[in-house]
Each structure stands twice: as C-alpha cells, then as structure tokens.
Computed example of a mutant assay.
Amino acid sequence: MSVGDLLDSGALVPAVVTALVCAGLALGAPALLARVPEPDEPDPDKPAYAVLAAAPRLSLRLAAASGVLGLLVGGALGWAWALPVWWVLVPAGVLLAHVDWRTMLLPTWLVARLYAVVVPLVVVGTLVGRDLDDLLRAGTGWAVAGGLYLLLWLVHPRGLGYGDVRLSGVLGIALGQLGWAELLVGTYAGFLLGGVLGGLLSVLRVVERKGFPFGPFMLLGAVVGAVAGPALAGLAA
C-alpha cells in the first residue's frame, strides 16, 4: 500500500493508532525481558536476558521498529476485528526477534505468554465479528504452520530450533485468522527471507554460515503476509 493509497482509503487512522499502540507496548518490552528465566543449561557464550534488557536505548529501538511495522499492518488491515491481535503480536515479535538474534534462542517463557494473549484475542475477535470461518482458519493455521515446522525439525533438528516450532504455531493462528492468502504467503515468506537474507548475511559474515537465528525472518515473513498476502497471492495465481 502506497502513501497515497493509505491517505485515500481511510486507513491512515488505524495505521497511526496501531503504530502508537505497538510502539507504546514495546517501550515496556525490556522490563518483560528482564523477567525471563535463564535456561537450565545455558550456553556459556549466551548473554543473560537481564543483561540484554539493560542495554542502552533498547526500549527506544524496539519501539521504533514496532511502530514502523505497526504502521504497515494497521494500514493494511484497517479497523478489522483481528487488529488487536497484531497490536500484541508486533511488539512481542520484535522483542523475540531481538532476543533470538542475540542468543539463538526463542524463550518458551515468552512464546507461551504470547499464546496466552493471542488465542483469547482471536476467539473474542471472531465471536464479536460473527465470522466463525476466521476461527476455523486460525486453528488450521496453527496446525499447518506448526505441523510444517515440526516436520522440518524432526527431519533436520540441527537446522531449526524447537523454539521456531513453538513460534510458528502462534504466527499461523494470527495469519490464519486474516485469510488463506495471508497464511500461505506469510509462512512461505519466512522461509524465503530466511534463505535469501540469511544466505546474504552469511556471505557477508554478519551471521555464522552454519547457523543463524530464523525467528526474525519468520516474524518479518508474517508481517509480509499480513500486509501484502492477498496482493502477492494474486500475482502468483
């Protein structure tokens, strides 16, 4: 969606509101990160979550990223019943992407709490919107995305962490609520971005060639699916 389309379609208000909500929630993300318990057997090279949380200007950086992504998502969805799901998913996703990038881990403690918020929001949104098809697609999204990542993890566990499997389910729920195009594009985009951008970053030696965090690409792919899923699916049809 171009700036002109955003202004003409009446999507500017939900876009700005979503950007502000996402940025505002992200400001409190470091305090949440500081509460994450450490793994039972942490990698000696992994920085402690409390240390990550205390990084200078972290809250502002997370808020800026969340605000930009929230602007895009809010402009694409408008005043949809699914929008509150993304008010939570965007800042939580930015935080998880940051943690995964720094630690190569997606903490179960955070992902579980994301499920605990997203699932009720999806259920309430579909009931208030009186469209049970959205709920059916959300459940299917959880099964399809989660099942696909589980299969890949079983086939090649060294290439994918189980935290990615957990995260894929909640992303599938949120994308499935929006539509089939959003679900398919959002899931595929995560793999495409991980392969292309991850490969490029490996060549540039920004990340390790044999292993790099996949969570950030999954989350970015989900945003692509939410924002441009129908348009991209239409091009492929």
Rank of each mutant, 00 (worst) to 15 (best):
G141H: 10
P39F: 10
V124P: 02
A222S: 04
L121N: 00
W109E: 15
V119R: 00
A53C: 02
V68T: 09
P30D: 11
V13N: 05
G172I: 05
W153A: 15
V227I: 08
D134N: 07
A26M: 06
D8P: 11
L27S: 00
S202T: 14
R158V: 15
F214V: 07
G4P: 06
G221S: 07
A26F: 02
G75Y: 01
L132K: 08
D131E: 12
L220V: 06
P44C: 13
G163C: 14
A23Y: 03
A11L: 02
P39L: 10
L220K: 03
L183Y: 09
H156L: 13
V68Q: 05
E182T: 15
V124W: 09
G93N: 05
M104Q: 13
L220N: 01
R137L: 11
L232G: 01
L160H: 00
D100C: 07
G125V: 08
L193A: 14
A48H: 12
L32P: 08
R209S: 08
T103V: 05
G176I: 03
T103L: 06
T108M: 03
A34I: 02
V111A: 02
A92N: 00
A138S: 15
G24E: 11
W86P: 02
A54G: 04
A228I: 02
T140F: 15
V122W: 03
L135G: 15
R130S: 13
V144Q: 06
P37S: 10
L193V: 07
F217N: 00
